Simulated scan of single mutants.
Amino acid sequence: MSRIPYATLIATVMCIIGGLVFCGSMYRGSTLTALMLDNVFHLRVHWFEPMQITFIAVGGSMLALALMILFVGFLATGATRVKVYRAWGARVGGRISCAIFICITYLLLLVWLVVFIFLVLVTAYYTVSWALCSSSQVQNEGKGIDFRQFRFLFPEEIDEKYLLINPPNEIKLFCKDTVEKAEAMFILATFSSLLIILSLVHFLVCLSANYAHIRDHEKLQELQELQYLNDPDLTSSKDRF
């Protein structure tokens, strides 16, 4: 039990859960967004499929990174650290590996902060759209949804006449079939990205602690060897050394 890196294990579980939820929700959310742009605004976007593949690749890379950091955490915890990092070369390799993972985790933390801000903006857009769909003018009076005042939020390729969603079938396609489902997906993606950010912060703390443990282990081992050499009982000193 003393050889299990509990802090790193918790961060790994958080990262895996967040990565899986992020991949699934973003894949579904991007699919719904592509359908909305195609069916409602009559705009076909060709880079959604490569973006979906990118989401899957990001999830796999985060899973691999979490498992590698967990492996480093096992090596630097408890009695395992005493056995693994006994030699000078092993200690240098352990410190270098921790430093490399610290740099990678820090860069990924910055990237995921940008992703989180982007998802907050996308979720805000879908929340505003759902508020428009739930308004009394649309639900009771049967009026259309006018996005012409938000022209700057849409690509320039969209014709301005499609920004006025007026027929009932288009309103149903936009509100019920797209916005209602996509909003839930992007909310899940936002919270999952926040969970990944928290796990990366935990990884930074754990890797910094492991780096310090490996570095200090050399000093403690040298001090222990000096105590063994100064032991008046030569026999026991030689045996321990």
Rank of each mutant, 00 (worst) to 15 (best):
A189S: 07
V82S: 01
A34F: 02
S193P: 05
A182G: 05
D38K: 04
L220K: 11
Q149A: 06
L119T: 08
H217M: 03
L195T: 09
I117G: 13
M36Q: 12
A184V: 11
D38T: 07
F154H: 00
T33P: 03
A66N: 00
Y126G: 01
T33A: 12
L234Y: 06
T123D: 04
L107N: 11
S237A: 14
F241E: 05
Q221H: 02
S237L: 01
M14P: 08
D177K: 14
T235G: 03
Q52C: 04
D159Y: 09
K143R: 03
V201A: 11
L110C: 13
L223V: 00
L163E: 04
A212M: 14
I171Q: 06
V138M: 00
T127I: 06
I53P: 05
F241N: 05
G19I: 05
V84Q: 02
F152H: 11
A99D: 09
Q52W: 04
L65K: 01
S192H: 07
V84W: 00
A131I: 04
I56R: 05
Q139P: 01
V92M: 07
L67S: 02
I197G: 11
L173F: 14
H46I: 11
L226Y: 10
A11W: 09
Y27N: 10
L75Y: 01
V114C: 15
L234K: 06
V21G: 06
N230H: 15
L20N: 13
A87I: 07
L9D: 05
T105N: 04
K143I: 00
C175W: 07
K83V: 04
T190L: 15
K83Q: 07
L164A: 10
T12F: 13
F74K: 00
S97N: 08
V114F: 15
L207I: 05
L226H: 10
S30D: 09
V45M: 08
G142R: 05
S199P: 02
I145F: 02
F55N: 10
G142A: 07
F174G: 02
L110I: 14
I197N: 14
F186Y: 15
N39H: 04
E157Q: 11
L107W: 15
A209W: 09
L229G: 03
Q227Y: 14
P167R: 08
K238R: 14
L132M: 08
G60K: 06
G19K: 03
P50D: 05
F147A: 01
T54E: 13
A76G: 04
Q224D: 07
G59Q: 10
L20M: 15
P167D: 06
P50A: 06
S97T: 09
Q137M: 04
E157Y: 03
I17G: 08
I100G: 01
L226V: 08
V84P: 00
M51H: 13
Q221G: 00
F174C: 03
E183D: 06
